[in-house]
Amino acid sequence: MKIVSARDFSLQREVDYGTPEQNEAARAIIRSVRQEGDAAVLRYTESFDGVSLTAEQLRVTDEELKSAYDKVEPSFIQAIQEAAENIRAFHMKQKRNSWMDWQPDGSLLGQIIRPLQRVGVYVPGGKAAYPSSVLMNVIPAQVAGVPEIVMVTPPATGGKAGIDPYTLVAAAEAGG
């Protein structure tokens, strides 16, 4: 019997989508972040977004979440909660189970379904906020059983640190 695992396929495979210059620029950014970690992320945030942050500002605090809830309307919170419930119910119906089936000739057929260990979710931000992107990306990963979900979003426009309060509330309501 041959077992084929997703690990057999290179996750480092590069796919080019832009011009050669754009692809090389993207590869350079990825190399920098892999080598330098948060220091590179902070440098690129300042360069691209015009916002100077510290490493401590990369994670949302409880105070920031509380402040976000104070800034959004109760009707938004209710709508986000209802949407989250609907999205979760929809994706629960898509879940599949692992299965094994011994054949009369002694062979074993089946599939094992396991969630990824970690996923990254990018939520657009800056000039426009898309709180629904939080729900539509985080909740399916949760339903699939992904144990670690990391969400990133750009800071507010105009050189201000901070995240759109609607996006933060959506993240909190999604379980982030």
Score class of each variant (00 low, 15 high):
31 R>N: 12
141 A>N: 13
21 E>Q: 15
142 Q>G: 09
118 R>M: 13
151 M>D: 01
1 M>S: 12
90 F>M: 10
175 G>C: 08
49 D>K: 01
29 I>P: 00
106 G>T: 14
31 R>Y: 04
57 Q>T: 04
13 R>H: 13
160 K>H: 15
115 P>F: 10
146 V>D: 11
123 V>W: 01
91 H>M: 10
67 S>R: 15
48 F>I: 12
96 R>S: 12
10 S>Y: 07
121 V>R: 00
94 Q>N: 09
108 L>G: 04
81 Q>V: 04
134 V>I: 12
7 R>K: 13
58 L>S: 06
164 D>N: 15
124 P>T: 09
41 V>P: 00
166 Y>C: 05
58 L>Q: 03
75 S>L: 13
71 K>Y: 09
120 G>S: 09
32 S>H: 04
72 V>Y: 07
43 R>W: 02
60 V>E: 12
38 D>H: 03
83 A>W: 00
74 P>G: 11
154 P>A: 06
39 A>G: 07
125 G>V: 02
139 I>F: 02
96 R>D: 06
76 F>I: 02
129 A>R: 02
103 Q>E: 15
29 I>H: 00
164 D>Q: 06
107 S>W: 06
142 Q>Y: 06
106 G>N: 10
21 E>V: 04
46 E>P: 04
25 A>M: 12
93 K>D: 06
88 R>A: 11
50 G>Q: 11
30 I>C: 05
42 L>D: 06
165 P>G: 09
154 P>R: 03
105 D>S: 13
28 A>R: 14
31 R>V: 01
20 P>H: 07
105 D>Q: 11
54 T>R: 08
82 E>I: 11
153 T>Y: 04
55 A>W: 05
137 N>H: 11
159 G>V: 12
9 F>G: 07
60 V>H: 11
151 M>G: 03
170 A>I: 01
58 L>T: 02
64 E>W: 05
69 Y>H: 15
11 L>A: 13
91 H>C: 07
140 P>I: 08
94 Q>V: 08
159 G>D: 11
114 R>M: 11
6 A>K: 10
165 P>W: 02
64 E>M: 12
171 A>F: 04
53 L>W: 06
88 R>I: 04
132 S>C: 09
4 V>A: 14
62 D>G: 14
17 Y>N: 07
162 G>D: 10
53 L>F: 09
154 P>I: 06
33 V>L: 02
63 E>I: 02
130 Y>T: 03
126 G>M: 07
68 A>Y: 09
51 V>D: 01
110 G>P: 10
113 I>Y: 14
38 D>P: 00
132 S>W: 09
102 W>A: 12
113 I>G: 03
119 V>C: 12
4 V>D: 08
5 S>E: 15
21 E>P: 03
57 Q>H: 06
50 G>C: 08
78 Q>H: 11
114 R>E: 15
11 L>T: 13
120 G>K: 11
85 E>V: 05
11 L>D: 11
39 A>P: 01
69 Y>C: 03
134 V>W: 00
45 T>F: 01
76 F>T: 01
156 A>E: 15
96 R>K: 15
108 L>M: 14
47 S>M: 14
51 V>C: 05
81 Q>A: 13
19 T>P: 03
21 E>S: 11
145 G>S: 14
23 N>L: 07
154 P>T: 05
124 P>H: 12
126 G>Y: 04
85 E>W: 10
100 M>E: 14
152 V>P: 01
15 V>E: 13
141 A>Y: 01
130 Y>G: 03
119 V>S: 07
72 V>K: 05
77 I>E: 06
